[in-house]
Computed example of a mutant assay.
Amino acid sequence: MVLVRELAVLSIVVPAVAALLLWAWPEPARPHVPVPQLVSVRGEDRVMFYADLVPLQEGLKPLPLLVTGRASNGAKGALLQEWPGFHAEAQFIGTAVSVRFEDNVNRWRVLIDNGRSGMIELSRPGVNDLRIRGLTAGAHHIRVEKISESSMPTSFGGILIDGDSEALPAPRARPRLIEFIGDSDTVGFANTALRRDCTEDEVFSATDTSRSFGPKVAEALDADFRMVARSGIGLVRNYEGVTPQSTMTTRYPLALPSDPAAGRLADRPADIVVTALGSNDFGSSFTESEPWADHEALSRDFAAALIAFLRDRVRENPGAIQVLLAFGEYGKPLLVPYQQAEAALKADGQQAVLITLPKLDRSACFWHPSAGDHDLIASWLTTAISPLVQ
């Protein structure tokens, strides 16, 4: 009888304690909003430099650039860009440099001497020059990288100097280029967030493409990276079946995904191509207007489209290693097409490798991969690719 009473008490106390702990446990912090328009951080040399946004300056001289990422010609020598991960680098001798923007959409990071001499982060800089002064006299390297996802094309007006500085040749490209093809998981959508429920402003604040798995893999392999990725996009169907005419199959060739008429500037063939599509194809239910009755039918079409898509990438990047990155959480409807695609490429005589990811934590906004997930994916990719490039 005593035992029964004790069990009865425990049956009440344990759930109550659990509920109390759940109530008292602090919720993850929300992403900080709004993002400051300009933040400067001193580098390791601790030299005080000055950075401010000013109206477009006259008489500046453009530096030769190493540009990585899809782009189209804009006005007055500017570059129009929209795909994520766009970045440009230059070198100069002097104490001052400027970066020109026409952009009310994106976040940017500017690194001087790989951050040793300073770092600046910008949010929606507008039609302005970022003017940087007070650097140590001598030679400097500057890198300007977009870390947010564009919803439309914006203009990058280059890196410029005045008459007191001297231009140096553009930096030499790294020995390898890796192209990452994917969706929001590749972009790094809200990857720095610590919670799943987010506002639009919080997503903007928490997205940092430079901390997604692609740039991490490139850094580990002493390579550069190019991204052809977009949130919501799929290979044969987009998330929830929206804009069926704008899947990766039709958007991939474009310089600007929202402007099919824009001319695409020539870019370097990739040495490694990582394709990570399918989350949006299989991650939502069908609408009445879509042609698939079930995931089995979609899987068959996805397989055929994936093989054709990858063979196009082989033709554009001769000799490149084709890395197929499959998100295992979507099961056989996605995994079987990736297995068939790997087999087809190998039968064609191509070097191909399939990596199947385990179930991810997905604790960032709207169930997107967290920073820890991106670290995990980068580790798996680096481990798989490293033996192939030695």
Rank of each mutant, 00 (worst) to 15 (best):
Q37E: 13
Q37G: 06
Q37A: 13
Q37K: 08
Q37F: 03
Q37P: 09
Q37T: 11
L38N: 04
L38H: 09
V39M: 06
V39E: 10
V39R: 11
S40V: 14
S40L: 11
S40N: 01
S40Y: 05
S40G: 03
S40H: 06
S40P: 02
S40E: 09
V41L: 06
V41S: 10
V41D: 01
R42G: 15
R42H: 09
R42T: 13
R42Y: 02
G43Y: 08
G43T: 11
G43W: 05
E44H: 09
E44W: 04
E44M: 09
D45N: 14
D45S: 05
R46L: 13
R46N: 13
R46M: 12
R46Y: 03
R46A: 14
R46C: 06
R46F: 04
V47E: 13
V47T: 15
V47F: 08
V47S: 12
V47K: 14
M48D: 15
M48Q: 15
M48K: 15
M48Y: 11
M48G: 10
F49C: 00
F49S: 01
F49G: 00
F49Q: 01
F49P: 01
F49R: 02
Y50V: 14
Y50S: 12
A51W: 07
A51G: 01
D52Q: 14
D52G: 12
D52E: 15
D52P: 00
D52M: 10
D52W: 06
L53W: 06
L53I: 05
L53F: 08
V54T: 10
V54A: 07
V54S: 03
V54C: 00
P55A: 03
P55Q: 01
P55V: 01
L56I: 14
L56V: 14
Q57Y: 07
Q57A: 12
E58S: 11
E58G: 04
E58C: 00
G59P: 00
G59C: 05
G59F: 08
L60G: 01
L60R: 12
L60H: 04
L60I: 10
K61S: 15
K61P: 00
K61G: 04
K61A: 14
K61T: 15
P62I: 03
P62C: 04
P62R: 13
P62H: 05
P62S: 09
P62W: 10
L63A: 09
L63D: 05
L63I: 07
L63F: 08
L63G: 07
L63E: 06
P64L: 03
P64S: 04
P64H: 07
P64K: 04
L65F: 08
L65A: 03
L65C: 02
L65S: 01
L65R: 13
L65I: 07
L66A: 11
L66I: 10
L66P: 00
L66M: 12
V67S: 09
V67A: 07
V67C: 02
V67H: 04
V67P: 00
V67K: 10
